[in-house]
Design a protein around this nucleic acid. Structure first.
Lengths: 183, 183
DNA sequence: GAAACTATACCATCTGGACTGTTTATTTTC
DNA sequence: GAAAATAAACAGTCCAGATGGTATAGTTTC
């Protein structure tokens, strides 16, 4: 068991509980048990429940940002690269929603202020997407559709079956290659 | 004070608490106080906390469905009417999110199974939207964009300013008038 | 030898909800 | 149609158990 991995294990455990049983089941005891850590060990890493949730948000925020940024750098085309990167990263996130959305739900449940880092990230992305060489309104619609995909997975609101989901992804990406003029 | 209105007042109070303070603050005592009802009175209307949340979900589900159905019946055009109705209703909902999204968040927090009625409704809508006389993939994208709009308001993730929001709405509605062939 | 834990006991507070009234409206009885 | 019975709509208190967090004392890892 590598040293620093306990902290990470705790975050994963917390996310799992939120995903499976809802945030009401996110108690310190439950997290400690799930992570196979003593309560003392848990509180050593996170001094309070709020700190734990804060950690969750920060963790997912980091992953999410990294994914988007990587996708941006890998993109060959200049126009629409932020929009494409966001769509790809959000699409991936919507599938692995166990880890990711848990922080968001937990934060909303315990203290909505804890969402600020993620809100900051999103504000930044929306800014980039609006100035991505595409029609801003159309680019925003593509962004929102990606969010909607994630949303549908989180709450189980008519999540798309695999076929349709892939077609949607393809179409969204395709539309980031249209230029401003053919609305 | 009209008689039956207390029940409704309780639901509004619960929604307000979830929206302002997060679902962790949704306690029976807090709801009773906010609704200006005694705890006994609260438990008379809702026999348990779970029943209260169930009531919230059912309530929002009813409103949401009514809004969509009304919009469908008012629509003159046949093609795309479900998609348009969904977009309009969801757009409206995303603005008055106090009342509406609270049930969803609370259910997810306490017992995800309570979301089933709403999931059923959504499944039905997605079916109608996919067979709305439009290209199914494109119609689904429009639906998801509307969901994304709501999502962004619930979590404060780069919510759109009024101008952009209206432009997005217009564009989404406009795109429901394109027929299948010009992808 | 310090950081990273384990293990357990403990406590103040909160929470759901059971329980016992009390009032108000409605229906039934004579 | 007054009185009595019944039920609905609350009010207010109480309690067992859960929960977040503290404290302490020891152990393992680097």
């Amino acid at each position: 068991m590598p040293r620093e991995s306990k902290r990470h294990k705790i975050l994963e455990a917390a996310a799992l509980i939120v995903h499976n049983r809802g945030i009401d089941a996110l108690t310190l005891d439950a997290v400690a048990e799930e992570a196979q850590v003593s309560k003392g060990g848990l509180l050593y890493h996170f001094r309070s429940k709020e700190a734990l949730v804060e950690g969750l948000v920060l963790h997912m925020n980091n992953i999410y940002r990294t994914n988007v940024e990587n996708a941006v750098y890998e993109d060959i085309n200049r126009e629409g690269k932020w929009t494409r990167a966001f769509i790809k990263a959000t699409y991936d996130q919507s599938l692995k929603n166990t880890e990711t959305s848990a922080g968001m739900l937990a934060a909303q449940g315990i203290n909505p202020d804890l969402l600020k880092p993620l809100q900051q990230t999103y504000a930044n992305w929306q800014d980039n997407i609006s100035n991505d060489g595409l029609d801003p309104v159309q680019a925003t619609i593509l962004r929102l559709a990606a969010d909607g995909l994630w949303f549908s997975e989180i709450f189980g609101l008519a999540p798309l079956d695999e076929d349709l989901r892939k077609q949607v992804l393809d179409t969204l990406l395709k539309q980031t290659h249209q230029d401003k003029n053919n609305a």
